Computed example of a mutant assay.
Amino acid sequence: MTEKEKMLDGKIYDPSDSELAELRINAHKLSKLYNDTFDDEADKRAEILDKLLPNKGEGVNLQGPIYFDYGVFTTVGKNFFANFNLTVLDTCPVTIGDDVFIGPNGSILTPKHPLCHEDRNVYKKADGRITDKEYGAPITIGDNCWLAGNVTVLAGAKIGAGCVIGAGSVVTGEIPPNSFAYGNPCRVVRKITEQDRLIYKKDLF
């Protein structure tokens, strides 16, 4: 297996691999270019996103600044919106469904690191390059989800369709569809039901 194949499969891999380094540099450059554009430069932003996120649907709107580790390993559905400071470390596949909203400072983090420092610390390879041992797990966010501000989604997490994740939550496991969940670690508080529709919120009108 190549180091890229190991990484995407959740196995221990060498992040100093030249193919991975080139992909990261490209994504970091494209992220910086995007961050240097403004809201009224829609065509320029779209051109950058086509390169950074080749696996995206129509209507993707990222407020910026954004930070992607690879970009090419993230799949985004249509009508995706993320507010300021979206960070996606896609060392393993990240899959985001249609009509997903993410508030400011959202973090989607697939990497893991060994708990023992003997395994975690950097070391020098025979060729002189500095590296470490890393691995990860994929993340999936279903259709029609809203992740409020400062939500962090960790490696291996799965958020079912129609969920709302409260501000400041840390999602570590699986959240069933149509759940209102929050906390650290994030836990389901209750189901989202028809009674949550705006037609029942007379005081808001």
Rank of each mutant, 00 (worst) to 15 (best):
M1I: 09
T2P: 11
T2V: 02
K4T: 08
E5S: 07
D9E: 07
G10D: 03
I12S: 05
P15Q: 03
S16T: 04
S18G: 09
S18L: 11
E19Y: 00
L20S: 05
A21C: 15
R24C: 11
N26G: 10
A27W: 08
A27N: 01
A27Q: 07
H28M: 15
L30V: 02
L30N: 08
L33R: 15
L33E: 15
D36V: 01
T37D: 06
D40V: 06
A42T: 14
I48E: 05
I48W: 02
K51Y: 02
L52A: 06
L53H: 09
L53S: 05
P54D: 01
P54F: 12
P54S: 12
K56E: 05
G57W: 06
E58M: 11
V60Y: 10
N61P: 13
G64N: 04
G64L: 06
I66N: 12
G71W: 03
G71F: 08
F73T: 03
T74H: 04
T74G: 02
T75R: 10
V76S: 07
G77P: 11
K78D: 14
N79P: 14
F81T: 14
A82S: 15
N83S: 12
F84Q: 14
L86N: 09
L86E: 13
L86I: 04
T87C: 08
V88F: 00
L89A: 10
L89R: 03
L89S: 12
L89F: 04
D90E: 01
D90N: 07
D90A: 01
T91F: 12
T91S: 10
P93C: 00
V94G: 02
D98L: 01
D98R: 07
D99C: 09
F101S: 14
G103H: 08
G103L: 06
G106H: 01
T110W: 00
T110R: 01
P114Y: 03
L115D: 13
L115N: 14
C116V: 15
D119K: 12
V122K: 15
V122A: 15
Y123P: 05
K124Y: 00
D127T: 02
G128E: 09
G128F: 03
Y135S: 05
G142M: 06
N144E: 11
W146C: 02
W146A: 06
W146I: 09
V151C: 02
T152S: 04
L154K: 14
L154I: 03
L154V: 08
A155V: 00
A155P: 06
G156E: 04
G156Q: 08
A157H: 07
I159G: 00
I159F: 01
A161W: 07
S169T: 04
E174C: 05
I175N: 05
P177A: 10
P177T: 00
N178M: 07
N178Y: 13
S179I: 02
S179A: 09
A181G: 12
Y182L: 13
Y182R: 08
G183Y: 13
N184D: 05
N184A: 09
P185D: 10
P185K: 11
C186Q: 07
R190S: 08
K191P: 10
E194T: 00
E194K: 11
D196W: 14
R197G: 04
L198T: 15
Y200W: 13
K202A: 14
F205H: 14
